[in-house]
Simulated assay, not measured.
Amino acid sequence: MGRGRAKAKQTKVARDLKYRTHETDFGALARELHGERDDNDQVDDYDDWSDYSPRSSND
């Protein structure tokens, strides 16, 4: 018991996903899936960690 609300929510979400109109850029999706990146999408993954220095083994 107690599944009524959860099931109703899942049904609502599923219906919304089924009937919503999407503006999908299939070219961008294909590039992402094949590992190709645009120049605008390139992000330096280490930039967030550049302020940190490695700790010495004595710490």
Rank of each mutant, 00 (worst) to 15 (best):
H34N: 13
E23T: 09
D45Y: 11
W49A: 10
Y19V: 06
G35C: 01
P54F: 05
A30V: 10
R15W: 05
R55G: 04
D59I: 06
A30I: 11
V43G: 00
E23A: 14
Y52R: 06
L17V: 04
M1Y: 08
E36R: 08
H34F: 14
D25Q: 00
L17N: 04
D48N: 05
A6E: 10
H22E: 14
D48I: 10
D25W: 02
W49N: 03
L33Q: 11
W49L: 14
K9Y: 05
V43D: 00
A8C: 01
R5Q: 05
Y19M: 03
R31M: 08
E23Q: 13
T21D: 10
W49P: 03
D38Q: 08
N40T: 14
K12W: 03
Q10D: 07
N40I: 05
S50R: 12
E32N: 12
R3Q: 14
R5P: 03
A30W: 06
E23Y: 05
R5F: 04
Y19S: 06
K7N: 08
Y19E: 06
R3E: 15
Y46I: 06
D59A: 14
R15E: 07
D25Y: 01
N40P: 00
A8S: 12
S56G: 15
A28P: 01
H22S: 09
G27Y: 04
G35D: 00
D48R: 10
D45S: 10
R37E: 12
D44R: 00
D59F: 12
R20M: 09
R37N: 08
D16W: 11
D25S: 10
S56E: 13
Q42P: 01
L17H: 04
P54T: 10
A30T: 08
L17C: 04
D51I: 03
G35T: 02
S56A: 14
T21C: 02
